[in-house]
Design a protein around this nucleic acid. Structure first.
Length: 190
DNA sequence: GTTCCGATGTACT
DNA sequence: GTACATCGGAACG
């Protein structure tokens, strides 16, 4: 069979996931912001080699890597592997489409823009926690549908990291109101 | 609008 | 003890 989406580099997967629809137990929406991490990247959890925490990043592609950050929040990643284990894509924001009431039960009575506009918020809204770590995205409770038409992307440096801060591996859906933070204005033409 | 800061678990020095 | 792929609230302009 043809190579799957996840048998590609983190950067490619991060680009391709923009515009895809992600649901967890029927609650979700359109992915509008992602970041790529790979094993050669000092910002990546996998940079130090396999450990107990990052084990899913070195496992089969197409699975979830969920970890706790700052002791309070969860972050959701999709493991990928283009022949070199240790890469993943952090899903940072999505545009809510289904299960808004359920999201508000978990997050509070927020407007749609506030429900999933950040990696920690998204996990809370979708009910993602450590129990989903390592689970395949092709099986319940996950559902992932790729976009038909590739959307227009914006690109920038990643957020909240100190090492590898120059690497422009953050991707967003152009013009989206559902981002965790705006992308810096881009020069008019390239 | 902005900046500052505390909460709190886990991995690592 | 320190550093985190964060968030929400307080204080300020």
């Amino acid at each position: 069979m043809a190579q799957t989406l996840f048998d590609q580099s983190a950067e490619t997967v991060a680009r391709t996931l923009i515009g895809a629809e992600l649901e967890v137990d029927g609650v979700g929406g359109v992915i509008v912001e992602t970041e790529a991490y790979d094993v050669f990247d000092p910002a990546s959890h996998s940079f130090v080699g396999p450990t107990a925490r990052n084990a899913p990043m070195f496992g089969p592609p197409g699975r979830a890597y969920v970890y706790r950050i700052y002791g309070l929040h969860w972050c959701f990643n999709v493991v990928c592997d283009a022949g070199q284990p240790g890469s993943a894509v952090l899903v940072r924001a999505l545009e809510p489409r289904t299960g808004l009431e359920r999201m508000r039960e978990r997050r509070g009575p927020l407007p749609p823009e506030g429900l999933c506009s950040g990696p920690g918020k998204l996990c809370e809204a979708l009910g993602i926690d450590g129990s989903l770590n390592g689970r395949p995205l092709e099986a319940a409770p996950f559902a992932l549908r790729l976009h038909v038409q590739p959307p227009a992307l914006v690109q920038g440096v990643r957020i909240g990291i100190s090492k590898g801060a120059e690497t422009p591996w953050r991707f967003g859906l152009a013009g989206s109101r559902f981002l965790s933070r705006p992308f810096p204005a881009v020069a008019a033409t390239a």
